[in-house]
């Protein structure tokens, strides 16, 4: 029982790190980015190549994944995304679906279509018992890393100059510009960090979620659930939403495997109908 809870939390935190970048793009720029998973996939493959092909230590593979995705993020943001920010939601949807299709086919072409695994060092394999609860070492690592990242994010957003600029830009980009904040630079930096985190999450998640070229499509809905259910007004909302989603998904698959992901989608629709702004939106705007 508690093992499932533990696994669920690990899974949920992983989802959070994967999706929090999307929460920012959606909340900050009101940009529907269905291609977010492509950045996660980039990180996953970057780590895979670094660790398996070049023998880079696993723990060093993670920052490599972050950098690779962040770099890709900033390049695409500056060259393509900037042109689409002000377009309609329909255009954003078309654009980002196009990117997903290109990413899927390109990775398929370069890396092949079969699922890949990263060689995890021995010290991260297996599990140990704490008061009868089986704790997977790898999942513990996920919780530690993602927990630290979440805390760091919270700190940056709440207490630093960058955080206040970001929040000002979120609240009202025009006013923020008037105050002399370079909103474009804030957008770009945020996009890069969001993509980087997705990449890191993608690398960490290979062991649990698997990795193949269809990753961005398979998990797109999960990222969207985290963001829409959690709301985009704070980082706590998506965090709680992803943890709940993680626990529910793991528990659901364990206890009622017949139900599949059916329950999750149903809950999502119910929540969206009930509270279109997300479960944890600031001030319940009906």
């Amino acid at each position: 029982m508690l093992t499932i809870l533990f696994d669920g939390i690990a899974y949920g935190m992983l989802l959070f790190v994967l999706a929090c970048g999307l929460a920012v793009t959606l909340g900050l720029m009101n940009f529907v980015n269905l291609a977010h998973g492509a950045f996660a996939m980039t990180g996953g493959y970057a780590a895979f190549i670094a660790v398996n092909r070049f023998g880079v230590p696993f723990l060093l593979g993670l920052p490599i994944a972050f950098l690779a995705s962040a770099l890709l993020g900033i390049i695409l943001e500056r060259t393509l995304y900037v042109h689409v920010y002000r377009k309609s939601h329909l255009d954003q949807v078309l654009f980002s679906i196009g990117l997903v299709f290109m990413a899927v086919a390109a990775v398929d072409y370069i890396m092949g279509s079969s699922q890949v695994f990263i060689d995890v060092p021995d010290y991260l394999k297996g599990q140990f018992n704490v008061f009868g609860v089986g704790i997977g070492k790898y999942r513990l690592l996920i919780i530690v890393i993602c927990g630290l990242l979440t805390a760091a994010l919270q700190f940056v957003l709440s207490y630093t100059r960058f955080g206040s600029r970001l929040r000002a830009s979120v609240d009202d980009a025009r006013v923020a510009r008037g105050l002399g904040i370079n909103v474009n630079a804030v957008f770009a930096a945020t996009f890069a960090v969001g993509s980087g985190l997705a990449g890191l999450g993608g690398a960490l998640g290979v062991e649990i979620l698997g990795l193949d070229p269809y990753f961005p499509l398979k998990f797109m809905i999960y990222f969207l659930i985290v963001v829409t259910v959690g709301g985009t007004s704070s980082i706590t909302g998506p965090f709680v939403a992803s943890t709940l989603l993680g626990v529910a998904d793991v528990a659901g698959k364990y206890y009622v495997p017949k139900l599949g992901t059916f329950a999750i989608y149903t809950v999502m629709i119910v929540v969206l109908i009930w509270r279109p702004q997300g479960l944890f939106a600031r001030g319940s705007a009906k």
Binding site: D91, I97, G98, M102, A103, V104, A105
Partner: peptide, 20 residues
């Protein structure tokens, strides 16, 4: 044969960037 989806994606991106 396998990768035509790439070109479909490219068309989508191009349509949006060029402008509907």
């Amino acid at each position: 044969p396998q990768y035509w989806q790439f070109w479909i994606g490219l068309v989508l991106v191009a349509i949006v960037i060029i402008g509907r």
